[in-house]
Structures are given as structure tokens and as C-alpha cells.
């Protein structure tokens, strides 16, 4: 079964990329990605730039509205995702718990819709 692992963190508490903590975190993600690729379960994964760089688009009644910022203000923000393929939810939970963000933020597991 295919699952999306959606990575949420509080941006305000995240270390900056250049800092030693930031580099450390980056290495952790590199290592995790390498592991799940070797395990043959990694289907895709990307990091996202912060919500400062977000743009929200809504089309209502033919009118386009473009605003600066994420779709909503939330305590934790979407920072990246992985798409994995594993046998069942328990396996997905196991993988999600290994995502570095699991320790400081939240990882949301969503099954992908399989269109038949």
C-alpha cells in the first residue's frame, strides 16, 4: 500500500540551515532517505521551503485571489513529505517514527487513493 508521510514542524523553533544544528538535521534526513531507499520502500520525497515563501491561490465565482502565505495559520507547518510503499499501516507507522521530525514535530500518515 502507498502512503504519504506529511512532515509538520513548528518553523519558529527549527534551526537555520547554516547552523550546526541545522547541518545535523540535514544529515539525519540524508541518512533516513538513504535507509528507506535501500529498503526499497521510498517512492518520492521532497523538502519544502518555509511558509514565508508560500503563496495561496483561490478561485471563487470566477475571481482569482492570490495571497501571501500558507492556506491557514497553524501551530505546526508542512515542511516536507515522503511517499512510501509498505505492506500495511503498522509498517507505515514504523517508518514514520523514524522520520527526524517525529521527535520534534508530527508526521501525518495518509493512504494514497488508488484509482481503479
Amino acid at each position: 500500500m502507498k502512503y504519504a508521510l506529511l512532515i509538520y514542524e513548528d518553523e519558529a523553533t527549527m534551526p537555520s540551515q547554516g547552523s550546526p544544528e541545522g547541518q545535523d538535521l540535514y544529515q539525519k534526513y540524508l541518512s533516513f532517505t538513504k535507509d528507506i531507499s535501500e529498503e526499497g520502500i521510498n517512492r518520492a520525497g521532497e523538502a519544502l521551503h518555509g511558509t514565508d515563501t508560500a503563496t495561496s491561490v483561490r478561485l471563487r465565482g470566477g475571481e482569482l485571489s492570490v495571497t501571501d502565505g500558507p492556506f491557514a495559520e497553524t501551530k505546526e507547518q508542512l515542511g516536507g513529505f515522503y511517499l512510501i510503499e509498505v505492506d500495511d499501516l503498522d509498517k507505515a507507522i514504523g517508518v514514520a517514527s523514524r522520520v527526524p521530525a517525529a521527535e520534534t514535530g508530527s508526521v501525518e500518515i495518509r493512504p494514497l487513493v488508488e484509482w481503479v
Binding site: 502512503y3 505492506d87 500495511d88 499501516l89 503498522d90 507505515a92 500518515i109 493512504p111
Partner: peptide, 14 residues
């Protein structure tokens, strides 16, 4: 069904 919750007795560590 949708989330793929498996029908099994958990492993020893779980």
C-alpha cells in the same frame, strides 16, 4: 480497509 490496518497479532516488541 482504507488505511490498511493489518489483521494480525502485534509483534513481540509492539
Amino acid at each position: 480497509a482504507d488505511a490498511g490496518i493489518p489483521y494480525r497479532v502485534p509483534d513481540r516488541d509492539e
